[in-house]
Amino acid sequence: MYRYRILYKKTDLLRFISHLDLLNTVQRAARRAGLQMVFSEGFNPHPKITFAAPLPVGVEGYKEYLEVELNEQNIPGELVSKLNNNAPRGLEFLKAKEVDKKAGPLMAEVGYADYCVQTEISPGLDSSQLNCFLQNFKDRDEILIQRKTKKGTREKNIRPGVITLEGNVSKQSIIIDMQLRTGSQENIRPDEVINILAKDYLPVGVKNLKIMRTAVYDNNKKTLLT
């Protein structure tokens, strides 16, 4: 059994497929590529493919990670090209590396992610004003939002999970870059930050957002595939 970690991106219109759809898409691409996947035991065996962190529907991911277990050894470069030859438009595999099959789950390694949010230009707002608004947000110790859970809504302080927050106003759009805590221990979504910003701090619309996840890191803010 061989375990591979693969860097990929999910962009363009394919960002509108769900995480479950992506799982099926990768499985089918791997089958078409003729990869000998390892299957789970039990009544309903499924291929062993795991993802670092699910992307919300509509968010592009430029440095995403998955792991797949195979019965045959593959040269990483060839694995990437086999998958690319069988991937639909919008899904591209960039790099692969064989990893220790005894290593812990990929998901548990995830700690941080960078997001870039693009929104429509708002008249009269320049970069320094924008950053002034963002500073107001950062100056707070506590920013509470309501989160829906299975047991009802719960209050959550998102401020500690927002690591960086910078903005820039260009001719066409407003761009806000942020680094957020991501993963199973603590997870802040970019739209949660944007909704608070739009409500309390910024005169910008949140209707036509384009959100990109530009990187995913481990708990030491290091890349997941070197």
Binding site: D21, P88, G90, N208
Partner: peptide, 22 residues
């Protein structure tokens, strides 16, 4: 495409409308 992308953010199951399948 651009008009479409704006709409797709606001409807349920946008994958119904994107095309580009294998």
């Amino acid at each position: 495409i651009n008009e479409l992308e704006k709409v797709l953010n606001k409807v349920e199951k946008p994958a119904r409308y994107i095309g580009g399948e294998w």
